[in-house]
């Protein structure tokens, strides 16, 4: 086996890694914000808002990420919304991750006992303050492990964005493979890089969880299983 041809193209691989990470982190950031908004909408706005959020979550969870991506990249231009592969990928990843995260955060919020909310209101907190300090923070702390797994799965699923010509890590692999005809070597190297990325991201998210939720070890963690995107 000849790994030289592959490894000598490391600047290209590095670019791919950077794009994979950028896509993942931006989607994670936007996805959490959107999921939090949707969770809030679901519990604060009327019943109809709840139905719409639920429908959105079910729709995203029961169709493949690839279909969502193609719908945005190939389908939307037909009704006049045009974007490049990178934008379409970011949008698809954000929408997908937001749906899964909404479901996970909902489980966390459901686990907060009603008496906690009453206690917060009794202490003269506003509804918004109760939501932030009494509901969302502990809920996030509880479901952080499940969210973390979902984030890692999203990073892995970002490989699918190569189908709309995004030069992230697996897109880079396709180019190197076409260049060198060293398929096996290329995919071994790239797979190993994904492995390292996934394990590092997992460790990083663990560390981050302990940083932002110092109480995390004291709370019973919810055993919400993350699911592949």
């Amino acid at each position: 086996m000849l790994f030289q041809d592959v490894i000598s193209r490391w600047p290209m691989i590095l670019n791919g890694v950077m794009l994979t990470l950028t896509l993942s982190f931006v989607a994670i950031g936007l996805g959490i914000v959107l999921a939090t908004l949707l969770t809030g909408l679901r519990s604060l706005a009327g019943a109809w808002a709840g139905y719409i959020v639920d429908a959105y979550v079910e729709l995203m969870r029961n169709t493949p990420f690839l279909v969502q991506l193609f719908m945005i990249f190939f389908g939307l231009p037909q009704i006049g919304i045009r974007m490049n592969g990178l934008e379409a990928s970011l949008l698809a990843m954000t929408l997908n991750l937001a749906a899964y995260s909404t479901e996970i955060i909902r489980a966390g919020v459901d686990s907060i006992h009603k008496s906690q909310i009453e206690a917060g209101l009794a202490l003269a907190m506003s509804k918004r303050q109760v939501l932030q300090y009494v509901v969302l923070q502990p809920a996030f702390a509880r479901v952080w492990p499940a969210l973390s797994s979902q984030f890692v799965l999203m990073m892995l699923a970002s490989s699918i964005c190569s189908f709309v010509s995004v030069q992230e890590l697996s897109g880079t692999a396709a180019i190197i493979e076409a260049d060198t005809f060293r398929s096996f070597e290329t995919y071994i190297v790239v797979t190993l890089i994904y492995l390292v990325l996934a394990l590092s991201l997992k460790l990083f998210l663990n560390w981050l969880g302990h940083r932002i939720f110092p109480q995390v070890s004291g709370l019973a963690r919810l055993d919400t299983k993350a699911e592949a995107a």
Partner: peptide
């Protein structure tokens, strides 16, 4: 741990393009 930490797409590429090159 390994299979859960790599994209399914890579497993597919390895078994299709990879093995065919071999």
């Amino acid at each position: 741990l390994v299979i859960q930490s790599i994209p399914v797409l890579m497993v597919l590429f390895m078994s299709y393009y990879g093995l065919s090159a071999a």
